[in-house]
Nucleic acid binder design. Structure first.
Length: 505
RNA sequence: GGUCCAUUCGUCUAUCGGUUAGGACGCCAGGUUUUCAUCCUGGAAAGAGGGGUUCGACUCCCCUAUGGACUACCA
């Protein structure tokens, strides 16, 4: 690698950033960091009709939440030397290269309207605008130059198309897939520029910007592989072959069930987020859930995503961002698409939840409590977090695991009542109250000893007593060690709950 | 339809010609436990099919099948 590594993530601001796009951004970032290069963020907004307000800000916020840092371009701390980084703001730049191509006879002007093209497509099966068909279309190759000029002067809309020389092999060197060879005859004379909004299309803008921004490696999704030969050709036509970046086309993220590319719909359908952050579409008002709001740690999302299509070649599963950077390499990226395994995503988050400090989890949980109008002593919340965190996958699940610490049960799980609440239970519980009243403090260990002694002295069934006791305190057959619960609840509350259960059940 | 890419347990994957084909998620069983969960132990589970090449193929080549992407004045 003889030149400075510079990669870019170049999304189009058409909505929320898809999780597949996040992974592309991540791989770019890891690659840049690994080789001490630059990570750029460029906004590809050459389709004015698909622009969605707020999408750009969403992308920047999402990447920032995930810890994918931008060195240059949109969202970077300092504006880079290749500004602007929004393609809509680079109109003048592209025009110059369009003209260069036109002058060299490597591109031409076409007046065919969308309706004309549509007609041709229905008329001719497998119609493709190329060397064979451009002779029957309305363009600067079939019209004489005066007429072309007149039409333009009269304000007729046109597009500029690349003039592809057929019957030649175009080779694309892909870092992940090796050499891909395509015959130029099968690619069409793609639109490079449209007069209607004075903007280039993706293909041209992308090549021009990558060249101007000195991009060394283009790391993008596999959906771009079919158009990579066109891009290679564009580098040739523009005379930039020696500066052409290296390509790496990433495998796609697939639906967990069936097949096909993972889409926004799958999230709704299967019940998991496909976006990093919550998103409300300003046009449709439709909302989509995000990983952040679902309770995921950014580290977990990163770890999960990193392993979907890449592995270190070791048996390590948990990687910090630093470890990912150290270990990342493009030649360990797999070639085939990866089905999105949401269950494994949950497991990653569980792992991270367990490895975080109690302080950090407590802090997050305190916020959840405040939202529920519960103000509780930090020390006590810490103790609760310690007791319940191992049974949660998400901080958001902490509440359902620990709510009974804050709110006494009002209902009792019917199944458990049937199983654990027998005829003799109320009087046993009543007796238990007397026992507890005589325990000086409700320290877990001492209470346990005293209660267990009482149980054996009376020859009660340990399970019967304990499960009924739990039912009184929690209302459900769940939760941590029972005497840890009573210690935190305190004597008064514990006894009250038993009394309430005796009356209610 | 055409072009391109891909194909190892249900899923993510390791293997870069010689392995009892390894790990992880999930699943099942057992253990720990007063409950649920965690945790621990164990288990079931894979080279799409067919041809080659080779002393020897999951691994290299070809064909078939299957899946996917692309095929817009979208990116």
């Amino acid at each position: 690698m003889d030149r400075k590594v510079r990669v870019r993530f170049a999304p189009s601001p058409t909505g929320a950033l898809h999780i597949g796009g996040v992974r592309t951004a991540l791989y770019n970032f890891l690659f840049a960091r690994k080789y001490g290069g630059d990570m750029l963020l460029r906004i590809e907004d050459t389709d004015s009709s698909r622009f969605v307000p707020g999408a750009e800000a969403y992308i920047v916020e999402a990447l920032s939440w995930l810890g994918i840092e931008i060195d240059e371009g949109i969202g970077a701390k300092t504006s880079g030397k290749h500004a602007p980084y929004r393609q809509s703001e680079r109109k003048a730049i592209y025009k110059q290269y369009v003209q260069q191509l036109l002058d060299a006879g490597l591109a031409y002007i076409a007046f065919d309207t969308p309706a004309d093209l549509e007609a041709k497509r229905t008329e001719i099966p497998n119609f493709q605008y190329d060397a064979k068909t451009r002779t029957i279309m309305t363009n600067s190759l079939t019209l004489d130059s005066d007429e072309v000029e007149t039409r333009i002067k009269q304000g007729e809309q046109y597009v500029v198309r690349i003039k592809i020389e057929p019957n030649q092999e175009i080779k694309v060197q892909d870092l992940i897939r090796g050499e891909v060879v395509v015959n130029a005859s099968v690619i069409d004379d793609k639109v490079l520029f449209k007069s209607s909004d004075e903007l280039p299309t993706y293909h041209l803008a992308n090549v021009v910007d990558d060249y101007l921004m000195e991009i060394s490696h283009v790391i993008r999704g596999e959906e771009w592989l079919p158009s990579a030969p066109l891009h290679v050709l564009l580098y040739q036509y523009l005379g930039w072959t020696s500066a052409m970046p290296q390509f790496a086309h990433l495998p796609l993220l697939l639906k967990p069930d069936g097949n096909g590319k993972l889409s926004k719909r799958d999230g709704d359908r299967l019940g998991f987020p496909v976006f990093p952050l919550n998103w409300k579409d300003p046009k449709t008002g439709e909302t989509s859930s995000g990983y952040r709001e679902a309770g995921y740690f950014p580290e977990a999302v990163i770890n999960f995503l990193a392993l979907l299509g890449w592995n270190a070649g070791t048996e390590q599963e948990i990687f910090s961002m630093t470890e990912l950077i150290e270990n990342f390499s493009l030649d360990r990226v797999s070639k085939s698409g990866a089905k999105f395994d949401y269950e494994k995503g949950k497991w990653f988050n569980h792992k991270y939840l367990q490895s975080k400090s109690i302080d950090e989890i407590t802090d997050i949980f305190q916020h959840i409590l405040v939202e529920k109008d519960i103000i509780e002593d930090t020390e006590k919340v810490q103790k609760i977090v310690k007791l319940v965190r191992e049974r949660a996958n998400f901080v958001t699940e902490l509440w359902q695991q620990a709510s009974f610490f804050f709110v006494a049960p009002t209902t009792y799980d019917a199944k458990t009542v049937q199983k654990r609440w027998k005829e003799e239970t109320p009087q046993q519980m009543q007796a238990l109250i007397s026992v507890l009243e005589n325990v000086p403090d409700l320290k877990s260990e001492t209470t346990e000893n005293i209660v267990k002694t009482w149980i054996s002295e009376n020859e009660y069934n340990l399970g019967a007593i304990m499960n009924a006791f739990r039912l009184c305190l929690v209302g459900e057959p769940k939760g941590p060690h029972i005497f840890d619960i009573t210690e935190l609840l305190g004597k008064e509350e514990t006894i009250q709950r038993i009394q309430k259960a005796i009356i209610t059940i």
